[in-house]
Design a protein around this nucleic acid. Sequence first.
DNA 1: TATTTTATAGACCAATCAGTTTAGAAGATC
DNA 2: GATCTTCTAAACTGATTGGTCTATAAAATA
Lengths: 187, 187
Amino acid sequence: MTRTVFEKPDAVALVAEVFRELGYEGASMSSITARTKLSKGSLYHFFPGGKEQMAAEIMAHIDAWFVTEVFRPLEEDDPRAAILGMWETTDTYFRSGRRVCLIGAFALDETRDRFPSAIQNYFLRWIEALAGALTRAGLAAAEARVLAEEAVVGIQGALTLARALGDDAIFGRTLARLKERLGAAVE
Amino acid sequence: MTRTVFEKPDAVALVAEVFRELGYEGASMSSITARTKLSKGSLYHFFPGGKEQMAAEIMAHIDAWFVTEVFRPLEEDDPRAAILGMWETTDTYFRSGRRVCLIGAFALDETRDRFPSAIQNYFLRWIEALAGALTRAGLAAAEARVLAEEAVVGIQGALTLARALGDDAIFGRTLARLKERLGAAVE
DNA sequence: TATTTTATAGACCAATCAGTTTAGAAGATC
DNA sequence: GATCTTCTAAACTGATTGGTCTATAAAATA
């Protein structure tokens, strides 16, 4: 009998992709075991709290990744360069729109009511980090906030349309448009 | 024993709201019967094909509504007035962002694979109808298309953030910004 | 190498799932 | 008012759900 041994960080990442593809309700334990190759025993060993704990830890993992890779870099010295880096990181993370935003997807149905603050904070911090960079690049606080909100709205909307249309180009087009608009505002 | 008698159009509308709130996988037959007060007998009488038929008919119903209330009005004589009307209709339909886009939500998870053309056509037709109005208002076809895409992306993104943040104002702010941007382009 | 800890496999559970069936009530037609 | 069609209620089905448990394999520690 062959056995495959997993480590928890790998389990989190594997299960995350299943939730991302199927949504919280759509991701049944059997679909999770089938797609990740982790047995139920392994899953409940790592996540005694079941699906709810899996989703909570996945969201915490995503949040930590964005703090390190997106939000904190936006606080660095050169705000213009930081914002340019954000477009690159965002395009890579969402695989040019082929990967959806798990937290955005959770927000749309009543899964939101299970994790309201995690969902709210993720988007709030993104908007605040970007608005902060725009402010340090010279924009008035109010204008920075409006533009940051427009950017995060555009990213989410483009992810929805990319999947709805099966269009691999719309996400890149949207990022390019937002990049130009924010770039022009801080020139 | 009291019995409530429903008509099919009412059944479609009632079930639609449950799918909208819970998503396709999240909407179980028991949650549908509980929230709509339609019994299983009634539901399978109206929709012998079960959940899949319910969702298909709901999407067709939404599509028809948008054709009548949004897409066709955009083809009327005065394109500027038609576009202004679209912002009103959109704000009302999505209840200032408190109501999500069922078709956008279906696009995000593998529910999309059940109804790929219905989902794709809904967004394609919206973009095309709006681009057509912008063209007739004087814009070059390419520019009209880009702006129309930006508008539909913005609407979807704002719906996601409205729910994620529990913010009643962000949808209206986004619509106002898009209205101004499209209005300025055709002046 | 012996022991302890960590992790896997899969049988098992009660509850819920989508869907079927049947009996009869309400509404429409005659 | 009798007949026929439409619709509802709820019991029922087999399959699947999320979750538990036990035996044991692998890894870490001693």
